[in-house]
């Protein structure tokens, strides 16, 4: 009995709960503010990526404010209105307040959603430039293959029956299609800097995903579909490509690289690959 009394009537429980909530807010704010290496995204390499980051920051500002206010409000209420012998203040609510916070959240949340629409539209509602470099991305358990159309600018026809990883035709390029003779198939993606690239994403077996953090883009490779995705990388460097859609037992090893190179290096890459075909 003695123990129970101490636990329910005393100030210790509300104080501890409030303290935990305050510490939670403090640590969360600290981690967001101090850019710890395990809590930051890499810099984006596209203008759309920068826009997404901007929208992210805006959302963070809004939700962060709500988070801080509501957690601290809860901490305050818990401590302030603990049972110390008073009688509770009787009220059933206030229609005015309900109307105010309903309107406020509608404006805030929907406004945020509509603003976020811009970055989305830029990636998904627009067509790539006609001179964009076309690269076909194919996922299969558990590798990526990237196909360039070669000098003729045309992809060869694909025939699933001719797929054979062991004989060097992992995509099943139809041997009878002349357009396919000069196609380049490589395990890493190389693109020139500041030039628009249009990826044609597809899958041979199950659903995969093409994800490059620095592009801020994920796109599922959906069997039966060819999904276009365009971007213009503005920074030379090597970036990791990973699969983020559960695709089977080797899922976590499905991995490749995106090399953003200078125009000269890109030409050299194409020449070298063409020579190797």
């Amino acid at each position: 009995m003695r123990i129970r009394k101490r636990n329910s009537g005393s100030v210790a429980t509300p104080a501890l709960l409030s303290l935990i909530l305050v510490v939670l807010v403090a640590i969360t704010v600290y981690v967001f503010a101090s850019n710890l290496p395990w809590a930051v995204r890499p810099a984006p390499i596209t203008s759309v990526g920068a826009e997404i980051d901007h929208q992210y920051d805006l959302t963070l500002a809004v939700t962060g404010t709500v988070f801080i206010l509501s957690q601290l409000g809860l901490a305050f209420a818990v401590f302030k209105f603990r049972d110390h012998g008073q009688r509770a203040h009787f009220t059933r609510g206030s229609n005015t307040l309900e109307a105010i916070w309903t309107t406020a959240t509608i404006v805030l949340f929907l406004g945020l959603g509509l603003m976020g629409h811009k970055a989305w539209a830029e990636v998904r509602f627009t067509a790539p430039a006609p001179d964009a470099i076309q690269v076909e991305v194919t996922g299969n358990q558990f590798v990526f293959n990237f196909r360039y159309p070669g000098p003729d600018g045309k992809f060869g026809r694909l025939d699933p029956k001719q797929i054979s990883a062991s004989t060097g035709n992992p995509l099943g390029i139809d041997a009878n299609d002349p357009a396919g003779k000069d196609d380049i198939v490589v395990p890493t993606l190389t693109v020139p800097v500041n030039h628009e690239v249009n990826l044609l994403i597809r899958s041979q077996d199950v659903i995969h995903n093409f994800y490059v953090r620095e592009l801020r883009i994920q796109q599922d490779a959906m069997p039966g579909m060819v999904i276009p995705l365009h971007f213009t990388a503005n920074t030379i460097g090597q970036y990791e490509v990973v699969c983020t859609q559960l695709c089977g037992l080797g899922h976590s090893r499905m991995h490749s690289y995106l090399n953003v190179v200078s125009d000269a290096d890109y030409d050299a890459f194409l020449k070298q690959q063409a020579a190797g075909q």
Binding site: R41, G116, V123, I217, T244
Partner: peptide, 20 residues
């Protein structure tokens, strides 16, 4: 509150592209 607010990020397709 903590879990719900992060939903506002994921509800935006552009931001979801990064966090999905």
């Amino acid at each position: 509150v903590s879990g719900g607010l992060s939903g506002l990020f994921l509800a935006q397709p552009a931001v979801d592209n990064m966090l999905h």
